[in-house]
Design a binder for these strands. Structure first.
Lengths: 255, 255
DNA sequence: CGAGTAGTTGACGATTGTCAAGATGGGTGG
DNA sequence: CCACCCATCTTGACAATCGTCAACTACTCG
């Protein structure tokens, strides 16, 4: 119509039915016909660019989002204006679940790179989940999973030292990439060192120093955003704190 | 029957309909008749004593619990055998939500004092929520609220110093007691200093020292488990980090 | 090509953990 | 009812980790 060889967005519209992420995402455990019903309420978006907001703190909550390609960070703004990063989100991950309670967003979400996102209007999803028990169950499970995630964060920030935190972070990314079919040992960090430090509760300088040290001892290979994990087993040990000089265990006493 | 003046447990059985916690709990936003239906699947328990387990990590998940009287701590056990406290739970709070995903408990729950608990079989609750849309919605909201709670923890452990952490902890308790009709400025801590330190990611000694210092400057009055908040406004400022010498802000840089 | 952002490295200090010793109180058994 | 004991809590001295400040380098993007 308008131009030559312009592929209309509609043409590349992907449906849940043939989306490679469906095993990680909401359609998991739904029958094919239910997936089609789910698909009918989902809207696919134009690509977002690095720095674009998916939504901002305080905005009314209308829909959940699923990252399709790329990555997203969620953060909340402190009283002093600085931000506190809540998480990094890879393809297949649902964002916005914390907004259901109050019907408005409690944090902001921003694309870390060129990113595709699906929108799921929550009121429609809720109605649909009322008709499809397995969808309801799946939603309960996804919400529950998110709650279970808190445990890991508490471990990370409550008792781990800086080395263990970064090791844990790298292992977590590695496993998430792996389950998405990417390399578990060779990947790019879409977030800055500032973001990593903020997320892990450490100063940027500390992140930088640990990257350097991990590289010196042959644990990893880093060049800017590009990371290679050279000794996954050892890195996992470090992440669990099982490595050499048994580290400080803040407030670790039990009873 | 068996004895003299023994009040049978059945006689003091309380129903959701006349439970003072219903405004904080699942019945919130349900019609009276739906509350009765909900009530029919809920089982009230014998009292638990200090140290009794509600459930343990790894056990199959069957029911959610609501604290009715007393208090409970949830914790998960680390590789090294020490425990990591995940939260303290007051009357009206739902426990076990993290177990829905995998159908088995990911943490343990233990009574901190003499405690009454209601059991809600989850499979029945799920079925009922499928019949009562407002119950389904309420469950989504409760799960979402728990997820939003993670934000506060991240703030607490990620950027706050020791003073701010303890101040935040006290303010949180204060507000939760207040919304339950208890004094916001005069209460008893059911958990040990060890537990507080563990929860806040600080050493017991640090907790002890801060309690002493807060008392010296007239912020609070502490005697063993008994705490009085003498300057709620100032304590809130401290909790938010808005107080005098602007504190360290670990990894606080934004971008 | 220039400017600004992101990242690195070093020196120093503050906060908080660790170790050790002592105080306090509650619970239990005689 | 008292005494002892053990767990909890407190306090002090010291050390370690990690944050802060500052300078410098290296990209990236107009």
């Amino acid at each position: 119509m308008t131009g030559r060889n312009v592929i209309p967005l509609e043409a590349i519209k992907i449906a849940c039915q043939n989306c490679s992420l469906s095993a990680l995402c909401l359609p998991m455990a739904l029958t094919p016909e239910d997936v089609i019903r789910l698909d009918s309420i989902i809207k696919r978006n134009r690509p977002l660019h690095r720095g674009d907001h998916l939504y901002s703190e305080g905005e009314p909550f209308e829909k959940l989002r699923v990252v399709t390609t790329g990555s997203v960070k969620t953060y909340s703004t402190c009283d002093d204006g600085s931000e506190r990063i809540l998480g990094f989100h890879l393809p297949g991950e649902l964002i916005g679940l914390d907004a259901i309670e109050s019907n408005h967003h409690r944090c902001s979400a921003k694309a870390l790179e060129t990113t595709l996102v699906c929108d799921i209007p929550f009121d429609q999803l809720e109605k649909l989940s009322h008709q499809i028990p397995s969808l309801q169950h799946q939603l309960y499970r996804l919400l529950s999973r998110e709650i279970g995630h808190e445990t890991e964060i508490l471990m990370l920030l409550g008792k781990k030292g800086a080395d263990e935190r970064l090791a844990t972070f790298l292992i977590s990314l590695s496993e998430r990439f792996k389950s998405r079919g990417f390399s578990a040992t060779d990947f790019f960090l879409s977030m800055s060192r500032y973001d990593i430090g903020n997320y892990l509760g450490l100063a940027v300088e500390t992140i930088s120093r640990i990257f350097t040290r991990f590289q010196e001892v042959g644990l990893i290979q880093v060049e800017r955003k590009h990371v290679q994990l050279l000794n996954l087993a050892l890195l996992k040990e470090m992440a669990d704190g099982n490595h050499h000089k048994s580290r400080s265990h803040r407030g670790c006493q039990s009873k």
